[in-house]
Write a protein that binds this DNA or RNA. Structure first.
Lengths: 249, 249
DNA sequence: TATTATTGTAACATTATGTTACAATAATAA
DNA sequence: TTATTATTGTAACATAATGTTACAATAATA
């Protein structure tokens, strides 16, 4: 995503971008049996927030969301889903952008386009934690994984956005089988179950879970895995794409 | 929603509105055992489309959607749900707005804000057909109910928007019990079942459906109804609000 | 008063899910 | 080398949910 001669967000007029529309991305990863979320830290401000961005005038909205998620993770093939548009007037708070800019020696003009009101399209992304290469978006920030239950206070309504993203993810787990996007190609049934348990926030019964997952017919058993644990080695499974599930509820 | 001294959408600059953001409302009704959708006809153009609108700079996005739906139906208490944001660049087609304006003796300037690209937030609304009073939005259009399987070709991607709204409605039927918003206060089990069958697009088994609905504990049996049919009279039911369903999937 | 069409629901069949139990086995330790 | 340990895979049963058949109840009509 090199945009050498293309417009920058930081230009005052916002030339080249759709006005009033922002994208916020809740990028989920799964590591050490914990759900992680990718957060931005704005340097010299102590402010944290979700990675976000704007839509170029010649760019699809979904493409813009993919670009935002790609820029931070280094991945190109990302499972992305719109989950809500945050458009309350009360979200409007120009002071935050001013703070970030001034903390870095810049002073935006009063009519800077980023000081106007934005409606934000929320996307959640599911990525394979092991494949991600974190990269800051601008010189003003850095980005890192945070455990979902150790998320600091974020700017604006970003804590609420994460909450809503998690709710949407929970619903899509059963309907769309999205969970696999959070795992590496090969995984054990135990991996899968703890992933489900973490997202759903409750324990599941092992035999029932295994029976159900296998009955879906979307898992291919690939090989044994010798973990090094003093116990029977689990099988490795792989998600078999191309099979759609009819979730006739 | 009287906005006497407030800005109008038709002004060239779009002063007072958020730029680049539109709202499209798929307003569903249910009548004669048929799902209906409310469509706008733009006069002297032969063009049909969904009711839509824009967001005022001091207005919540959801409030704007409610305003759009209210203006057409005359209702104030409307079940509304965001279901998708349509943001592909390929949607961009300024000619449509030109056609509608010129058909009515107006000629928008080349830099009219409505000739720019918009991203559209899709909402679906569920209304009690019997309570609706249709009202056109502007002097350029009229609005009417259309049977869902007799929808004409619509402007832009509006046919696709309806399709996606229906898919979202189908999912919410079981999870959120939204169906009742389409029925009058009192209804028979038969009414409810045909509503479900119409939305889901398939037949349901009567005993199982009745058993399930009653088991939900959200229906109050109010009285007998004497329809005039040569058969046993059905009970009337009423939706008992306040009871939330835990759709632990 | 018999007929008709539809309603309400019981009763059973089937499927899905919850739960208990136990054999299989990779690593560790005796 | 062999017993121990912790975990895995799954059978087997229990319970709940859903699918299906059947039939009595009854409001209007003939």
């Amino acid at each position: 995503m090199t945009n050498i001669q293309r417009a920058k967000e930081t230009e005052a007029t916002g030339e080249g971008f759709l006005k009033s529309i922002a994208i916020d991305a809740v990028i989920f990863g799964f590591h050490d049996n914990q759900l992680k979320v990718l957060l931005i830290e704005y340097k010299r401000t102590g402010l944290f927030g979700l990675p976000g961005g704007f839509v170029r005038v010649d760019e699809d909205l979904n493409t813009a969301a993919l670009r935002v998620a790609s820029e931070r993770t280094g991945l190109t093939d990302i499972y992305l889903e719109q989950f809500y548009v945050f458009g309350d007037y009360s979200r409007y708070d120009p002071s935050r952008f001013k703070t970030i800019m001034t903390a870095n020696g810049q002073s935006p003009t009063e009519d800077h386009w980023l000081l106007k009101r934005f409606v934000s399209v929320g996307y959640y992304a599911l990525v394979d934690f092991t494949k991600v290469n974190l990269a800051p978006a601008a010189i003003f920030d850095s980005c890192n994984w945070y455990d979902l239950n150790e998320v600091p206070t974020l700017i604006q309504d970003h804590n609420g956005i994460i909450k809503k993203a998690l709710e949407a993810l929970r619903l899509s787990l059963d309907n769309k089988l999205t969970g696999f996007n959070l795992l590496p190609r090969d995984f054990t049934m135990g991996n899968l179950q703890t992933l489900y348990e973490t997202i759903l926030g409750r324990k599941l019964l092992r035999p029932a879970f295994q029976r159900k997952m296998l009955a879906l017919g979307i898992l291919e058993r690939v090989a044994k895995k010798w973990t090094g644990g003093a116990h029977k080695a689990p099988y490795l499974y792989r998600f078999v794409a191309g099979k759609t599930i009819n979730s006739e509820i």
